[in-house]
């Protein structure tokens, strides 16, 4: 099992408590972006194209903690930008862990070995390392040679120190299923706890506009990648979401499941689209025209199958019906069943 029992229980009890309270829209994962500056400029990234004075701005620890408390999600994912550039990142993480949150610190790992001493191993802190494939594919995707080797070295060091380590991988149109499967083997050999995988979203502002996947192609790719899935591969995400990627299930997006907070405020409507900002999470929930977004509702959502929109949909199905629950158990026990 890729996710520890304590984390599963926390998420399960959180979801049930929301359902008992009759909350229709609740967040699962807060996407906390404390800065946009990065030490890489990856081809598929549309997050870092801003003027210098904007890249110099950072959320304070207090702002991060207030956002986490206001939102209430049990899991905090910290992407960016590169979070380890933030001089107060360890303080931010410590404060979030102290508040009982599970924190996924998403990093390209270039600075991880140097900064590791600032962090204390905890079952609530996970280093989620950006790895877009084997050495050749990863270095190509991040537009810099040598990053794969730096990242694998950092993964080994973090595991040796007792940290929880996962990987996060984005697949683009040029992904080669046998190579992706070899990459899964290599990550399991390294000893990571689990892997997270998602198709790329076609950011308007990303430098490479040709590599993004269309919906049908995404399903074909993931069906090929997960064909005859090996037992040793562990994924740190919902089994139903993986079935969704393979085209076995159909979901509508749940944009409020992974709300985003950054230097501009609470982002409407989701982590990927920027349709404006509001100053509170409550305002985000109450003033966003949610029915204007999603597959079939908005052109920008047409090909999106990204985890931040659909993982929450999969979790909702798991806890929303007996068929969802049994489907989840079945997908965990028999991942290769058709």
């Amino acid at each position: 099992m890729a996710v520890p029992l304590s984390q599963m229980l926390t998420v399960t009890s959180y979801v049930f408590s929301q359902k008992l309270k009759g909350v229709k829209r609740y967040p699962l994962v807060l996407m906390l972006e404390p800065l946009f500056r990065c030490n890489l400029a990856c081809a598929g990234c549309g997050k870092i194209q801003y003027p210098e004075h904007v890249l110099d701005r950072r959320l304070t620890p207090e702002q991060c903690w207030a956002a986490a408390e206001e939102c209430g999600a049990p899991i905090i994912s910290i992407p960016g930008g590169e979070p380890l550039i933030h001089p107060e990142m360890s303080e931010i993480v410590q404060g979030l862990v102290r508040r009982g949150k599970f924190v996924y610190l998403c990093t390209n790992a270039i600075l991880l070995e140097r900064k590791m001493d600032e962090y204390t191993p905890s079952n609530r802190l996970i280093f989620s390392i950006h790895m877009d494939g084997l050495r050749e594919e990863h270095d190509f995707a991040v537009c810099r040679d040598g990053v794969y080797d730096v990242a694998t070295r950092a993964i080994k060091a973090a595991l040796k120190r007792g940290f929880r380590v996962t990987t996060n991988t984005t697949l683009f149109s040029d992904a080669n299923p046998p190579r992706v499967r070899a990459f899964f083997d290599e990550m399991m050999d390294l000893g990571v706890e689990g892997m997270m995988i998602s198709p790329g979203y076609s950011y308007e502002k990303a430098p490479d506009q040709h590599g993004f996947l269309k919906r049908r192609r995404t399903q074909e790719l993931f069906a090929a990648v997960f064909a005859e899935r090996k037992r040793r591969w562990r994924f740190n995400q919902s089994p139903l979401f993986l079935e969704f990627l393979m085209g076995k299930r159909d979901y509508q997006c749940t944009p409020w499941g992974n709300p985003t907070y950054n230097i501009f405020g609470w982002q409407k409507p989701c982590y990927l689209l920027q349709d404006g900002y509001v100053s509170s999470f409550r305002e985000l929930l109450e003033t966003t025209a949610w029915d204007r977004y999603g597959v079939g509702r908005n052109e920008k959502c047409r090909d999106c199958m990204v985890h931040c929109g659909f993982e929450a949909s999969a979790v909702e199905e798991t806890f929303g019906s007996w068929s969802g629950l049994t489907g989840t158990v079945k997908a965990m026990l028999f991942p290769n069943a058709t």
């Binding site: 400029a41 194209q49 801003y50 537009c143 430098p207 490479d208």
Partner: peptide, 18 residues
């Protein structure tokens, strides 16, 4: 007035180098 930071050629330059 400001340079459009999303209109760069970084990707093409990287592919060309490779």
């Amino acid at each position: 007035t400001g340079y459009d930071t999303a209109s760069g050629k970084s990707w093409e330059a990287w592919v060309q180098t490779r």
